[in-house]
Each structure stands twice: as C-alpha cells, then as structure tokens.
Computed example of a mutant assay.
Amino acid sequence: MTQHERSKRTRGLIVEAAGAVFAEKGYNGATISDVYQRVGLTKGAFYYYFTGKEDLARAVLESQVGEVPFPLVPRTTRLQEMVDAGMVFALAIRKDTAVQGSLRLSLEHGAHDLDRRRPYEDWIAHNRYAIARAKDAGELHSHVDPEAAAQLFVGAFSGVQVLSEVMTGWADLEERISVLLQYVLPTIALPGPLAQVDMSPGRADRVLADLERLRQAEAGAEEAERG
C-alpha cells in the first residue's frame, strides 16, 4: 500500500468514526478527542487530516451521497437504477452509524457554523440526474420537470426517514420508502416502464448481492487479463 493509499484510508476511518460520534452526541456534544481516540490516532496525527471539528463535520456531511455511487448495478430501466439507489441508501441509514451521524448533522439546528444544505443539494443533484436519464430513455411522462421532481423526492424521502426514526428507530424505513415510491412514481413514470420496477422491501439486499457478484466478475476478468 502506497503512502497516498494509507493516507486516504486513514482519512476515511476518521470520517467514519466521526459520523458515529456525531450520531451519538450531536455536533455540540462531540469533541475532537472523541474521534481521534476512537480511531487510535494522536491529536497531532488528526490535525494532519482536518483543521478542526467544523472541517470534520463538513467531511461527514459531504460523504453522505458518496455512500451510494450511481448507478450501483446497470439495469434494463433507468427507473430501476434510481429506485435501487434510494433503497440502498435507506438500508445504509438503518445500519451505518456514519450515515446516521451525517443525517443528525444535517438536521441539527444548534450547529450554527455548519452549512447543512450540502447533503440536500447533493441528493437533489443526484436525483435530478437520475430522473433526467429516465426521461431521456422515454420512461417518464413528457411533462416531468427533473428539477421539480428531484426536489419533491428529496423532501419526501427526508420526511419519511425522520418519521421512521421517531416511530421505530429506522426499523421500518425500507417498508416506508417502498410505500412512498409506490405512491409517487406513478405520477411521473409511464405505465410500461413502471411495471418492470421492483420497489419492494428487501430490494436493497438483492441489489447489494448483485453488486457483489458484479465486482467478483470484474475482478475475475482483470485477473484473467493479467494472467
């Protein structure tokens, strides 16, 4: 492993640990020492990567969308690729404390020195791109405005995940997102493409299984080329 790779890995570990700390304590309750001690670093080593708590929190917020690259697995419809990303993110919210930390930061009113708009702006851009691809592929009604639809999806998803956290600690988030999609997608999608879309609970696990098979196939192909 090169020095650059080690530095990148260490920075990622710091961001992951910070997300977990922010999830537990919030922005105002968390300290820098909470984070670097969890990673097993010295204070000086930490400051090699980040200038302070605000810089660290910004990195946690910016990492939220990066948790779900797009598309995860190529599908026959662009709508399915969009749904897959949303369902996998819902699973990450339920299981990943770093993602939970980024969500808490984005909702924490007391964090006055943070720009909490960043993850919402990123998700709007993510959805705008996905919706535009689906429209270009002829899967959506002609009147659909990708920007307006993206704003709607992000707002609705955000509200549903907050409700799920309050009611069940996110235990039912995938079911709630499935219901959201069942009601909202018919307003933008044409019946034919929509009929092919799997938006059922448990979809995220199936997507991740497909993703692992795809990665193994790609790794096998690269090994064969080298051999």
Rank of each mutant, 00 (worst) to 15 (best):
D136R: 15
Y36R: 05
R58Y: 06
R133M: 15
H109Q: 11
E165C: 08
Q80C: 07
A92K: 15
R176N: 11
G227C: 02
G19F: 07
A189M: 07
K8Y: 00
L114G: 06
T51W: 09
E5D: 14
R116V: 14
L107A: 09
P71F: 04
F157P: 05
V83R: 09
I177P: 10
G110H: 05
I93S: 04
G26N: 00
A92H: 12
I93M: 11
A85M: 05
A137Y: 08
L41K: 15
Y27M: 11
L185A: 08
D115E: 00
M1I: 02
V35S: 04
V21E: 12
L105G: 09
A85W: 00
G169H: 12
F50S: 03
E81G: 14
F46A: 07
V73T: 00
E225R: 15
A195R: 05
T77P: 12
I14W: 01
A85G: 10
F70P: 01
V39T: 02
A98C: 01
Y47V: 02
L152Q: 14
F50W: 03
A132Q: 09
Q151P: 07
D34S: 02
A137H: 09
I124Y: 02
D34E: 03
P74W: 08
R128F: 05
W170V: 11
Y183R: 08
G44K: 05
G155Q: 02
S63K: 05
L180C: 04
R6C: 06
A137L: 11
R133S: 12
R133N: 11
F157D: 08
P74N: 13
L173F: 00
I124E: 00
